[in-house]
Design a protein around this nucleic acid. Structure first.
Length: 262
DNA sequence: ATGACACAGAAACTGTGA
């Protein structure tokens, strides 16, 4: 089975490109983040025509997660138990569309879009850390099954995952607290599988649209695949499809692909 | 050998991202 994760930065703006990629990459299950639409706005037809079933969780034009699968999609769960809510001061906090679980084949797949954090003194940063901590405690209870926690973690865990630690736009991605919250999944029974197969420096998954970041390879590695032991035992390889950042109409993130033996 | 922000929604600007 081939399982991929991709922050697509709007599924409506990029559906043609996503479908083309699904077919040429021969991917069985794709976890998407930042679909930026409600379920009724999701371009279902091209996915279904290509042979994929869909699970979609979107509340508005922000965030939004989905899973496309051609190996079945069952027991769909929107948000994880205890998932933190967020709202601006004076507004009613809501549980945002940032987590979607489904069983595809024999694998429990979670498509995850961790909050950005925005700034070190912003309430969004505390929200980010809490989101990761509660998720980890839930994930601990799923660790006995073949479970994949995949998506945009908005953390650059190692110094070498970040083109410049001085990038003010990503200060919440490199703090000791954010990095500790990321690494804590290892203590909950998970292995980050992209690192096992791709230990090299400069293997990024995101490049900002601005300032020639991609041609200069000034990016960040922030999209990951955590697997429980039962899943990690079946992993045979991970690739980062850097080519998907090229050309007009690219997302600012690229797919990360995990291969599993049957 | 890739290329100089992009997306959505309510209005020709604002919020959001990283």
């Amino acid at each position: 089975m081939r399982l991929a994760t991709w922050n697509v930065n709007s599924v409506r703006a990029r559906s043609e490109r996503i479908i083309d990629w699904l077919e040429k990459s021969d991917t069985d299950v794709l976890a998407m983040q930042e679909i930026k639409c409600k379920p009724e706005q999701f371009p279902r037809e091209p996915f279904e025509a290509a042979g994929y079933e869909l699970a979609i969780h979107g509340l508005n034009q922000w965030n939004g997660v989905a899973i496309a699968s051609r190996v079945g999609i069952e027991n769909v769960e929107t948000s994880f138990p205890g998932q933190p809510a967020f709202g601006k001061p004076g507004q009613e906090p809501i549980v945002e569309a940032r987590a979607l679980g489904a069983t595809c084949g024999d694998v429990r797949v979670w498509s995850l879009y961790v909050p950005n954090g925005r700034g070190l003194n912003d309430p969004h940063y505390a929200y980010k850390l809490q989101f990761l901590d509660v998720l980890k405690e839930q994930a601990r209870q799923w660790a006995d099954a073949p479970t994949a926690l995949v998506g945009d973690f908005n953390v650059a865990p190692l110094t070498t995952d970040m083109w410049s630690e001085a990038d003010a736009d990503a200060e919440t991605h490199v703090t000791p607290e954010a990095r500790a919250a990321f690494h804590a999944f290892a203590d909950a029974g998970y292995e980050e599988l992209s690192r096992r197969f791709i230990p090299d420096e400069g293997k990024y998954t995101f490049w900002d649209y601005k300032q020639l970041r991609f041609p200069k390879n000034e990016g960040m590695r922030i999209d990951f695949i955590y697997g429980s032991q039962a899943l990690a035992d079946k992993a045979t390889g991970v690739t980062i499809d850097r080519d998907e950042r090229k050309g007009k109409g690219a997302s600012d993130h690229v797919p990360v692909i995990l291969d599993l033996e049957d």
